[in-house]
Structures are given as C-alpha cells and as structure tokens.
Design a protein around this nucleic acid. Structure first.
Lengths: 158, 158
DNA sequence: CAGAAAATGATATATTATAACATTTCATCA
DNA sequence: TGATGAAATGTTATAATATATCATTTTCTG
C-alpha cells in the first residue's frame, strides 16, 4: 500500500521551501508578481497539512500585526488558484497547496474527516475515467472537482 | 454519443411526479415523514434542471405566502440529503434532485457553465477508479464529490 | 386523551465572499 | 530620474450562505 501522507520524520520545512521555489519559478514564467502578501498566504497554506480557510488565513495574518481585511486574502487566494499554485477544496470552503503547479493535471483530494489532513493525488485511472465519461456524453471539461472524504489509513487503524 | 440531458419534448412534470413517488417510497421504508415542507422543497428542486440554492428555495417558498426562514429550508435540505433524495453540489452551494434514491451509488455531476443545467451520472468507470484509488492508499470512503464543470454538448456546438 | 418525540417557527448571529472606491507600489520609458 | 499608468493593496460596506438556540406546533404512541 502506498502512503497517502508523508512519512513521519519527513522535513516539512524543506517541502515548504521547495514549494516556494516552485511558486517563484511559476510566477516568473507567467510574468506574475509573487508579492509579499501572496507569499505569506502561500506559505501559510503550505505550512498546514490541512486545508485552510480564508478566515483562518485572515486571523493568522492579522495576529502578525495590523488588521488584514477579507478582500486582501481573497485576492491572494484568487491569484494563487488561478496560477494553479493552490487548490480550493469545494466541500470545505478551504484551500490547499498544490504539489505539481508546473504541470496541468486533474487533481483528486483525499480528506480525512478524523484528523483533517488532506492529500492530493494525481491518479491516471481517475483522471482518465473522468475524461472518458465526459467524452461519452460530449461534454467539454473546464474544471473538475474530485474530493473523497473518509478515514485515512492511520485514523482507520488506530 | 449518449445524451447528457433529457431529449427535448420529454415530459418533465411526469419525471417530477415519478420522483415524488420514489421519495414517498423511500421515506416510507425509512420510517421518515415526508412532510409538507419537505415535499415542497423536494418538488421545487426537482422542477429545476439547474441546481437550486437554499435562498432560491426560500424565495420561492416565501412568495407563496408568509415568510419562511433559513433554518426551515436548511432542515428540509438536510433531511432530503441525508436520505439521498437530493444531492448537494459543493462547487455551487446548491442542491439537485437524485435520480436513483433507491440504490447506493457514488454519483458524478456534470455542470454546464453556459446554460447552468446539471446532470447526474452514475458511471462505473469513475466510481471504480475512485474506489480503487482509495483502496490503494488505505483510505476508507465515507463520501465522494465528483463535479465536472464545462460545456454540455448543446452549448459547445450551438 | 396524555405525554413524548419530531417537526417547524422565530430570533439572532456566525461564516464565507464580493462590490466599490481610495491609496500605494512598481515597472517603464520619455 | 521622475512622470505616468498599470497592478496591487487598503478600506468600508454589504451580500450570500449557514447554524445555534429556544419557543411552539404537530404527530405518533400508548
């Protein structure tokens, strides 16, 4: 059985840093500015193994100093999701960092209802099934939402 | 190519009536009351080919007479979704009638961003791919959300 | 019919998200 | 290099979605 979540002991700070590097690269390529606010929001999202809501981000940003307003956060989120650096989890109204911002993909999300952790999968079987089903009914896809809720292996067995 | 939506000329009132019959049957079996309010909400949802928001339901119910309050509608929606008579479309914050309330299934939803129509699919390829992917990572599924947005064949070609 | 359980009504408020306009920051080039 | 226009952010207000809580009514059961 492959692991849904990173093994214990993995260096998450390093993941976050590597994600930041990737984000910088994507922004560079797209001629988009990775501003301070966008970087802060991106980092906060990446530091969490759970999906993060807009107002959690607001609170986190506000405790750092002066009051940040909702539009500020929502704009950063829009920027990041448009570039594919962050995904919105529709069933949670929350946001999660994308592992693979550099390639087009249909992502699928596993969400543990016990521990709250989220994991992105890029599973060809699922993607292909969706693409095939759409083709069968003449539907041209713009976006897909595949969110799977349940118990992760850790929570199911402990 | 199979049809995503009912053919023109199909008798929608008859569909709604048949859905009502099914709903009654399901409620009977579950020993649940299909009250007046629940029936109204169910009917309003079924009369629409689009997903319907809670506040659209509120407005529709209110115009019929005295003011209906949000909890009333949300309770009816909770009842209907718990029984599987209605599905929530997460990416729209809206609700859609279920064709097959009598059998357990993982539903998938096609949502046309042009005309707003929604269609439920119960596609084995997609369901199996999801089940298999979950099994591979030791994830035990409680609920799935598969929502596919894009252009239906009609909108893409006209 | 009494009493309990279920459903609905009513009020208030929490949570999520956006509209509109003002100000600041930043890249560009004259 | 500093004027200028575009992009980003700040600010205020409000819209849209959802729930908590307690009161009342309806329905089921004995």
């Amino acid at each position: 059985m492959s692991d849904l979540f990173p093994k214990k002991g993995h260096d998450h700070d390093r993941c976050v840093n590597s994600a930041l590097k990737q984000a910088e690269k994507v922004c560079m390529e797209e001629n988009a500015r990775f501003t301070d606010m966008r970087r802060k929001v991106f980092t906060l999202i990446w530091q969490s193994h759970k999906a993060v809501t807009a107002y959690e981000l607001l609170d986190a940003l506000t405790s750092e100093g002066q009051r940040v307003q909702p539009p500020t956060v929502y704009r950063a989120l829009e920027f990041l999701t448009d570039l594919g650096l962050v995904h919105r989890i529709e069933s949670l109204n929350a946001y999660f960092g994308c592992d693979r911002p550099d390639c087009e993909h249909l992502g699928q999300y596993f969400i543990c209802t016990q521990c709250g952790r989220v994991a992105e999968a890029v599973n060809e079987d699922m993607s292909n099934a969706v693409l095939k089903a759409a083709a069968q009914v003449g539907f041209s896809i713009q976006a897909t939402t595949v969110e799977i809720k349940g118990l992760c292996h850790d929570c199911a067995t402990h």
